[in-house]
């Protein structure tokens, strides 16, 4: 071995250490750097394309806008995180949102029971979620199939309940605040989303149930042999996903003073995208709620930024899809780095 070769290996070792450091940092921060870079890129682009050299992207108003737009998807994505952690999937969140929105609005109509609107949203969502959960856990039907079925059937139910039109009601004192009120200078929509995030984090990180969710997702056989009630855990995750969908239904119908059978079409895909962007494994057992928050924000920033740039909605789809796939490729690389450490 010549000295030259030795110095080569020393350099290689140095480079490797450097690589490990970057990988380690990525591992701790997850997708946060992607979010920050994306935000800065949009800031740069909006400045570059604006007439007067100022950006209307990085303003307090617009940031609030982004957060408000993210709120509903984030609530759905939190429920989706529970489900995906058990290696399941819930395709029916958009349809559950529509059904509970329509039912809640119907209840709020004059002559019905306006005061019971909020419980209606939530209970409708919970019941539909429990229906999904029962079929997955007690009948052992594949979650994709179960929720594909309920996605389709509940979409039809939403149209039927709304009688094919939009249920409008400008007088909704009992829940007008949800979509339009502020608290301490922040819209209630954002408070509610933050509350859902905190609740989800608490359940997943601090409770026995949360630990059991990770265990069932990681290895269902071992979970059973270790005395975990697997069917209860599955019932719970689909129920909470339904419950959050009902809440999201309340949020959207309050914001728009109405509901129809078409509400929430395609929302399940944005929710799944947020969860996957957040680094939660579709195989189950791995993932965090903070990842989901970052994932939802990435999607929100993209939607908002592309709109401000005036990109056609067709190009928005292309850009959004590309970023999702690229981000997940990056995440794979990140996990490989983590595995080497």
């Amino acid at each position: 071995m010549s000295t030259h070769a030795i110095s080569d290996t020393a350099q290689a070792a140095g480079a490797k250490r450097h690589g490990n450091l970057v990988g380690h940092l990525f591992n701790r921060l997850g997708m946060l750097p992607v979010l920050i870079v994306l935000y800065l890129v949009f800031y740069g682009l909006t400045v570059y394309f604006s007439a007067d050299g100022t950006s209307n992207f990085m303003t307090a108003d617009n940031t609030m806008n982004i957060l408000r737009q993210v709120a509903i998807n984030l609530v759905l994505a939190c429920g989706m995180t529970f489900v995906i952690l058990t290696a399941g999937i819930d395709l029916s969140v958009g349809s559950m949102l529509a059904v509970s929105a329509v039912l809640g609005m119907l209840v709020s109509l004059p002559g019905h029971a306006p005061a019971l609107a909020i419980p209606t949203f939530l209970i409708a969502g919970l019941v539909m979620g429990m229906l999904n959960g029962s079929m997955v856990s007690f009948l052992s039907i594949n979650p994709f199939v179960v929720t594909l079925g309920t996605m389709t059937a509940l979409r039809g139910a939403a149209y039927l309940f709304a009688d094919g039109t939009t249920v409008l009601n400008q007088q909704i004192p009992s829940f007008e605040w949800i979509g339009n009120g502020d608290f301490l200078g922040l819209p209630w929509l954002i408070w509610i989303a933050a509350g859902v995030v905190l609740l989800s984090w608490f359940i997943l990180k601090k409770t026995v149930l949360g630990l059991h969710i990770y265990a069932v997702g990681g290895n269902p056989q071992a979970a059973r042999l270790t005395g975990i009630k697997v069917s209860f855990v599955l019932l719970f995750v689909y129920s909470i996903s339904g419950f959050f969908s009902g809440l999201a239904g309340a949020m959207s119908s309050s914001r728009l003073y109405g509901a129809n059978g078409n509400w929430g079409v395609g929302y399940e895909l944005d929710a799944i995208a947020a969860v996957v962007l957040g680094g939660t494994s579709l195989m189950g057992g791995v993932g965090t709620i903070w990842g989901t928050v970052i994932g939802a924000l990435i999607i929100g920033v993209m939607n908002n930024g592309l709109t401000i740039l005036g990109l056609s909605s067709f190009w928005q789809y292309v850009a959004k899809g590309a970023v999702i796939v690229l981000a997940v490729i990056l995440d794979k690389w990140r996990q490989k780095q983590a595995a080497l450490n």
């Binding site: 409770t207 630990l211 990770y214 265990a215 990681g218 071992a222 042999l225 005395g227 975990i228």
Partner: peptide, 28 residues
Amino acid sequence: GQGLFLQLSALTNTTLNVVSQHARAGII
């Protein structure tokens, strides 16, 4: 296949059977 949760920590794997005994109102 039937025993360990390979993606989870030594702590979770070791204490999974007794976690309820070290929790109050479901909080670990």
